[in-house]
Simulated scan of single mutants.
Amino acid sequence: MATTVASRPSSEVDNEPSAGPRRFTQEEYFRMVEVGILDEDDRTELLDGHIVEMVAQNAPHRAAVIKATELLVDRLRAAPYVVQTQSTLPLDCHNVPESDLAVLSGTADDLLEGEPDEIPLIVEVADTSLEKDRTTKLRCYATNGIPEYWIVNLQNDTIEVYREPADGEYRQRETMTRDGSVTPLFDDLLSFEVGVVLPQDPSDEEE
């Protein structure tokens, strides 16, 4: 005798949640480092719960990071802020980016007591990572209320300035060219020319 098995309507099947990539928490991410699943030297970051491998940096990227770091450290020497370079930045349960630069309130020793009360500025240097910095990273910073986010765009020789975070995006965007100047919201005395941060081709200096 044949057995008939009743199947559910296709509409019910279609409405079932589909399995997706597992999202990790900040606690789980740090635990992976502690137990050796991830090595401290691995270049990874946690974005929206996903472990993302970071690409190797080319020479222009490294040069821009060094120049921006030197500039901010020098200008903020007497201010109540410190500059963190290419280090872990725990923001929320599912986001632990490794920003190229982050301006943190307080002193370096304050990190031993907990995360800073204020992160007025985050800077990413972008070449091959430009799309990620404009999408995934931008949403991460906007969602966490970072008031100002800069992308040093090596492809276009500009600095993209994002402000007014709301609903996972920035409502204000301004693109500054090499001959322009930029001033962060948290310190109007910190104005500097964009070209100071962008890498300089040695052949241009000789002309």
Rank of each mutant, 00 (worst) to 15 (best):
Y29L: 04
Y29C: 04
F30Q: 03
M32C: 04
M32H: 12
M32K: 14
M32E: 01
V33E: 13
V33W: 13
V33L: 13
G36F: 10
L38M: 10
L38A: 07
L38C: 08
D39P: 06
D39W: 03
D39I: 06
E40D: 07
E40I: 14
D41M: 08
D41T: 15
D41R: 14
D41W: 11
D41F: 10
D41H: 10
D42S: 14
D42Q: 13
D42Y: 11
E45D: 06
L46N: 11
L47P: 03
L47C: 05
G49P: 02
G49K: 15
H50C: 02
H50E: 13
H50K: 14
I51C: 09
V52K: 14
V52W: 09
V52N: 07
E53S: 15
E53D: 13
E53W: 14
E53C: 09
V55E: 07
A56L: 06
A56N: 07
Q57R: 07
Q57K: 13
N58Y: 05
N58M: 04
N58A: 06
N58D: 09
A59Q: 10
A59I: 08
A59G: 01
P60K: 13
P60Y: 06
R62H: 04
R62N: 12
A63H: 03
A63I: 04
A63K: 07
A64E: 00
A64R: 06
V65I: 11
V65G: 02
V65R: 04
I66T: 14
K67D: 00
K67P: 01
A68C: 11
A68D: 02
E70M: 11
E70T: 08
L71R: 14
L71Q: 09
L71P: 05
L71T: 11
L72M: 10
V73E: 02
D74M: 08
D74I: 06
D74P: 00
R75Y: 05
R75T: 07
L76Q: 08
L76R: 15
R77F: 08
R77S: 05
A78R: 15
A78N: 11
A78H: 12
A78E: 14
A78F: 08
A79P: 03
A79I: 09
A79M: 13
A79K: 15
Y81Q: 08
Y81A: 00
V82G: 00
V82P: 04
V83P: 09
V83G: 00
V83A: 01
V83E: 00
T85F: 02
T85Y: 00
T85C: 08
Q86N: 12
S87K: 03
S87A: 15
S87N: 10
L89T: 15
P90K: 14
P90T: 11
L91Y: 01
L91K: 06
L91R: 10
L91W: 06
L91P: 03
D92N: 15
C93H: 12
H94G: 00
H94T: 10
N95F: 09
N95G: 03
V96P: 04
V96L: 01
V96D: 01
P97G: 05
P97A: 02
P97F: 05
E98T: 09
S99F: 01
L101W: 03
A102P: 05
